[in-house]
Design a protein around this nucleic acid. Structure first.
Lengths: 201, 201
DNA sequence: TAGCCGTTGGACCGGTCGGTCCAACAAAGA
DNA sequence: TCTTTGTTGGACCGACCGGTCCAACGGCTA
């Protein structure tokens, strides 16, 4: 099918899935939103789950391309946290103002229960968790990350904190000018670092 | 209606709401689970939303009674964190092994979107947020909580971290004996304290 | 012009949902 | 015994769901 129409479909689906989760999302609403008939949808895509998988796959590859996350091994050394901060800043800049990214962020962690539904989502989440786990391992090896908590718990804490910060920032973004926002970002990163760093700074 | 049957209904509803959220929860499944006919349910309760409200209300009063959270003002002073830790320990002990509490914990933060549906839930969440906000304010006033982040963001971070710890602990609890579990709890609390404390310990 | 084929609109399917309705039942007061 | 009152089972309602199916359409080659 025509690429433009296909992008419209994926965007509408991403927004619907992000807003309501997989189960609660209405396929009828998606195809209504982009003016596609049901027969066309089933001709090209095949099922609601296939649509979800395509959205996840497309979003993941696009995100991976824009973010180009560093190899964890290259983060080792005394500059560990500086490099992490640089990566986070670059990632934030890349994601700036792209609603599409916000949608797929919601898809990744909001629905909660829909993780089992999609092999693609499971694969992407496993990839992210693996990368984060390796980053934490490298951080521990070079003394930049404390080891008094299980690594998997640390990873989940990082997820939870980032998610909370993202959600809060989305709700309060209009109350900040650029300068205050930069300061806020710095404080947030410092909080994350404080959570993970050993006591000796 | 008979109190015992009523408790059964509330328990079944709590478990269903906790497992699937408000929208996805099936009222038919609830009444099927406790052998109640639809007409009886609508005779006594009236609607799905009313049932949700009753579950929230009942759970909140029971929790409040068991937890007896301290007045934030009594936490002020150099022992701020020690008193917080004592309260958390007491709360954990009170909630130990009560599945009912786990259910309503899920209700409070898992569904995410269902907050707008229920006036009761909104009231309870507002109460908790207010209490937590006052605790944080007291902590700041006595120098036990840092002030480089907005208080509302700090509150959401506390929520997110506690939720992540709770979820992780539920999944990995069977891997720990009592001694290791106590140590884990201590490390978790230390992490929370590290997130909120000023740099000077 | 005839036939083909990828594409499309839209009726339709079985199922589940929350909610309504009424006849039947049991207990109790007369 | 008759009636009233509170309670119950379960048929039923319209709406929406994901998914199927088929007739018809439009651009192609011959």
């Amino acid at each position: 099918m025509e690429p433009q129409r296909y992008r419209q479909l994926l965007a509408a689906a991403a927004s619907e899935f992000a807003a309501h989760g997989f189960e609660q999302a209405s396929l009828n609403a998606v195809i209504r939103a982009c003016g596609m008939s049901k027969s066309s949808f089933y001709h090209y895509v095949g099922s609601k789950e296939a649509l979800f998988d395509r959205v996840v796959e497309e979003a993941a590859t696009e995100l991976a391309r824009d973010l180009n996350a560093p190899d964890p091994e290259t983060l080792a050394g005394p500059d560990f946290w500086d490099r992490i901060e640089a990566f986070v800043a670059a990632a934030l800049a890349a994601a700036k103002g792209k609603d599409w990214y916000a949608d797929l962020g919601r898809i990744f962690y909001l629905p909660g229960l829909s993780a089992e539904q999609s092999a693609a989502l499971q694969r992407v989440l496993a990839g992210v968790a693996d990368w984060l786990g390796r980053v934490l391992a490298v951080g521990r090896a070079c003394g930049a990350v404390r080891d008094d908590l299980p690594a998997s718990l640390q990873a989940e804490l990082v997820f939870a904190v980032l998610q909370a910060m993202d959600r809060w920032s989305l709700h309060h973004m209009r109350d900040f000018d650029d300068k205050a926002l930069a300061e806020l970002t710095r404080s947030q990163f410092a909080a994350l670092r404080r959570l993970l760093s050993p006591n000796t700074p």
